[in-house]
């Protein structure tokens, strides 16, 4: 089971790089925001998988919750900033 989770984590890491391409080269700022948000969600799952592998889910679940909340608020703040700029 551990192997399975490690494999899933590696796959998600690869997907993060795919999304990172869109974040760096993506045309326009909206693509970048969406890409960063997607990277955030993937990081959250990777954190949980790391917690499972090290048998410390109770610690990593706190971190991942904070990550999700800050990701949400950051995304909204960026969107609000763009709305003000217009």
């Amino acid at each position: 089971m551990n192997i399975f989770f490690v494999a899933v984590g590696m796959g998600l890491c690869a997907l993060v790089f795919l999304v990172l391409y869109r974040a760096i080269f993506g045309p326009g700022v909206f693509n970048r925001i969406a890409a960063i948000s997607a990277v955030g969600t993937k990081t959250l799952i990777i954190l949980l998988i790391i917690g499972y592998v090290y048998n410390r889910v109770d610690m990593f679940i706190d971190i991942s919750m904070v990550y999700a909340l800050l990701n949400f608020i950051g995304c909204i703040a960026a969107a609000k900033y763009l709305e003000m700029e217009r």
């Binding site: 109770d58 610690m59 706190d62 971190i63 904070v66 909340l69 800050l70 608020i73 909204i76 703040a77 609000k80």
Partner: peptide
């Protein structure tokens, strides 16, 4: 997060940041 800083990850700074972020969300 602030209160359980000595049992689990986090502590004063992290909790303060989350509290500030909640205020920022309310402001936005």
């Amino acid at each position: 997060v602030i209160m359980h800083g000595h049992y689990s990850p986090g502590g004063g700074f992290q909790g303060g940041v989350i509290l500030g972020a909640s205020m920022a969300l309310l402001l936005i």
